[in-house]
Design a protein around this nucleic acid. Structure first.
Lengths: 372, 372
DNA sequence: TTGTATGCGTTATCAT
DNA sequence: ATGATAACGCATACAA
């Protein structure tokens, strides 16, 4: 244990934890920190009861005598017993894990949604596991196998399309819920933001500031949710009596590069807007970079809006005016919905749309004189 | 065997699979395309062999007659059978999943390392699951239970400290490998970048450009790897005969905000450097924001370097000169090491340090005249 | 209230 | 080369 002492010198963390080791332990099967984990039988033996009683003491404590329960709990403490989830799930035919499948863990929206998912799951005794598909069907299949063997009780999809390739059609899926964007195939309930309303807020702001030539840098390819944002843009333009000029409605793929490209195209075509409404923040960031590279000031020369309010948005110069996704709330609602599905079987609703908020920062101003 | 014939026609969809049910067989439990997944018994029945043979056909095909293997494979195709990983792992006492535990999924370094991990794992028949602890011991415990029940064969730690709270000392951990930063407790092998060498490259560049007053914005609190970067800074300064002026060595926590704060402090104390060497890109971004907010130009007025080369670095204005982590390679090596541990038992080496590369972009220039 | 015994789907041992 | 069967750890129906 002077190893531990050594540690104590160099780092002040965790030091005294070591002293928690039960030094006084049972000599034989030293209960803790042993090579093989304690089983329910070990507990039963020590508590002098049957394994059935141990199981009951754990899962239905009210069905067991107080004194017995006490004995069992002590034995559990001594052995450091943890239920073997493998065996339990095999017996029960279901696990207490929820699988979250995402094509891209790096998505700036993902981590906060995940936090909402996890909190809600945890408060109901479920754990969360993340599957990362990289849009690769092979990988998807792996997770499908995982699901097939009941290793997860439910599925959260952070993708608009079931990621299981050919097998998708025949896949037996557990109860599932989509987040962030509707799931295209499979009739799966969906929890997300009201994309149309959100886009509408952005375009309305721009119009209120006096803009009429408002470009929309969209993305019809990667996320289904994005096409709804375009709908918001169009209805906003229509409602203001402006209509939409297709020369300044571009299609990209929601990346920074895509925003950059859009600006270049607009300059080349000489069909410049006074404002850029972008389908997401990444695109907006690309637009800002391109504009700044050409020597323009934002928002004096051009206004820019995003969508999502990714963490980076507030750190841009100028900080980006955008639409905030209630990410944690989305995660929470999605998990709640899934858990309801798990117990009730029937989806109470097919789509939950949360309210997006306009976050006004510094990338929007009235159009430059003479250019409106 | 016209059962099989049938199948050949309609493959892919489960539609006609029902017609494949052995009509001659047990009338009860209809074999295929049912609500419950096919088991090894279903396969055995259809192939007219024993379950032992099926198992062998799958795992040790060479031990089974060609004709038999064929029958089995067909039956597997018909039933859509997948091995129940739950049962298999229970029986084997180990699973083929690797758990990756990270405190923060949103870390810009994480996703690329993960890709390296996954690719390597997959090519060896292992799957990867991600655990997200948010630095919460409760959550850590959950994953510990997961490990305890053999649901994962190995562990990758994306954190400098075992995330299992009190239980850490007594935890029976599977073979484990740390990535990105050394794991403080537990004597766990580590794969990462050579932080000292990397930091040295940055400081050497700055010195070569003519800087002598080089601030170091560090972080001694969150990541162990970061203290190594400071060592690199110090040895570089010493080697150049500059020594280190403690007034311009600040300690932060590796966040954008922390970089900002450091700049403000330096301005308040009136101990301005000509260059900011930052412990990571996040800090550097914060420094750049603060500098720009005060109206300074980078790199004309101040030079800035980062470390990591996060995706955002190239999109800054000016783009950030930094040290690149070979993230995918780190993931690959870490997983390879873990898999070796899994088979051999003994760690072949205790630390693998990959070479960091200097990425010269536009945030470094010679110091402004009159300020050196 | 508690114990006995069965089965969840596999793999491995031992026969054949 | 193949089959019968025990065991992995647990939860529960049924007995007591």
């Amino acid at each position: 244990m002077d190893i531990v002492q050594n540690f104590a010198v160099t780092f002040d963390l965790h030091v005294s934890l070591c002293s928690l080791q039960p030094r006084d332990e049972t000599p034989r099967q030293s209960a803790v920190s042993n090579s093989t984990p304690a089983t329910i039988e070990d507990v039963a033996r020590i508590a002098n009861v049957s394994i059935a009683t141990v199981s009951r003491a754990i899962h239905t404590p009210e069905k067991v005598a107080n004194s017995t329960r006490l004995k069992v709990n002590q034995a559990i403490a001594v052995t450091g017993y943890t239920t073997n989830a493998m065996a339990r799930s095999l017996r029960l035919g279901r696990s207490n894990m929820i699988l979250v499948v995402a094509p891209d863990i790096g998505d700036p929206n993902f981590s906060n949604i995940l936090i909402g998912l996890e909190n809600e799951a945890r408060s109901h005794g479920y754990g969360v596991l993340i599957g990362h598909t990289q849009n690769d069907a092979q990988r998807g299949l792996e997770y499908l196998k995982f699901l097939n063997s009941n290793q997860a009780a439910g599925l959260i999809l952070f993708t608009g399309i079931l990621p299981f390739g050919h097998q998708t059609m025949t896949a037996r899926l557990p109860p599932s819920v989509g987040v962030f964007e509707p799931v295209f195939n499979g009739g799966i309930p969906y929890v997300g933001v009201d994309d149309i309303a959100g886009a509408r807020k952005a375009v309305d702001l721009l119009i209120a500031e006096g803009h009429r030539k408002i470009a929309f840098i969209g993305d019809s390819r990667t996320r289904l949710a994005y096409s709804r944002r375009r709908v918001g843009y169009e209805t906003g333009m229509d409602a203001a009596g402006i209509g939409h000029d297709l020369r300044i409605v571009l299609d990209g793929d929601g990346t920074i590069e895509s925003g950059r490209l859009a600006v270049e195209q607009l300059f080349m075509r000489d069909t410049l807007p006074t404002a850029f409404m972008c389908v997401n923040d990444q695109t907006a960031i690309g637009v800002m970079i391109a504009l700044k590279a050409r020597g323009y000031d934002i928002p004096e020369d051009f206004s820019v809006t995003g969508f999502d309010d990714v963490p980076q948005a507030v750190f841009m110069t100028p900080s980006l005016t955008t639409i905030r996704q209630p990410r944690t709330a989305i995660g929470k609602h999605a998990m709640a919905l899934l858990l309801e599905l798990l117990s009730n079987g029937e989806p109470p609703e097919t789509e939950i749309l949360l309210r997006p908020d306009l976050v006004v920062r510094n990338s929007v101003a009235p159009p430059a004189r003479g250019r409106r």
